[in-house]
Amino acid sequence: MTDTTYILRIENIKKAFGKNEVLKGVSLDVRKGETICFIGPSGTGKSTLLRCINQLTIPDSGKIFLNDEEVTHAGPRINYFRQKIGMVFQNFFLFDHLTAVRNVEIALLKVKKMNPKEAREKAMFELKQVGMADWADHYPAELSGGQAQRVSIARALAMDPDIMLFDEPTSALDPELTREVLEVMKKLALEGMTMLVVTHEMGFACSVANKICFMEHGHIKEQGTPAELLNNPEFERCKAFIGEFREYSQ
């Protein structure tokens, strides 16, 4: 059912911080509507890869294409691409001086130059989507972590992005709050949003992702559907990793 054209192409991305080579040539093609989860040990470049996609981190070499337009080396046009690439962070990064609804509408006003009435309507619509409409007038400090993360998802969605990047969206949350955020993400995935998710939530990855990429030492070591990764003997390393996870979580 998925579109045959690629919405996002990642070509041979390399990135080093000093002597530490974090990404050693990562390539990946993403189809419209796919949800891809990145799993793997800490420090293997998962988050760096996401940040390279919207150029928050500039890769040393390699190319990124969004809808066949090059995102790397875009110059000032990068601000256009970033609107098309929504991002959600581990620590939410809500704007602390703005209420929830102002958080969602500020980029609509400043970047998209929408008129205030339209922007407010759009912001309220997005807050409703994540179940936060009742909290529109609260400041970030008055929200729980799960609520804050849902507002930050609404903030990214308001820009009508083509794809969404989630950088460990639930790692700062307790299980209860994790669930409410994962529910929102699952709904998004089912609605056909293209999503790249760095996560340690194996349950979410296995039930929602079309594809799981297991990353280690700056490479995508193994990739496949959740069923393939769990059942095929060739995905040894990934299974071992998941096994370790299970040990601790039981």
Binding site: N54, L56, R82, I85, F95, D96, A107, V111, S152, M159
Partner: peptide, 11 residues
Amino acid sequence: GQMIAARSLGM
């Protein structure tokens, strides 16, 4: 993070 979030929205 405030700057990173703002830039990620296209500001």
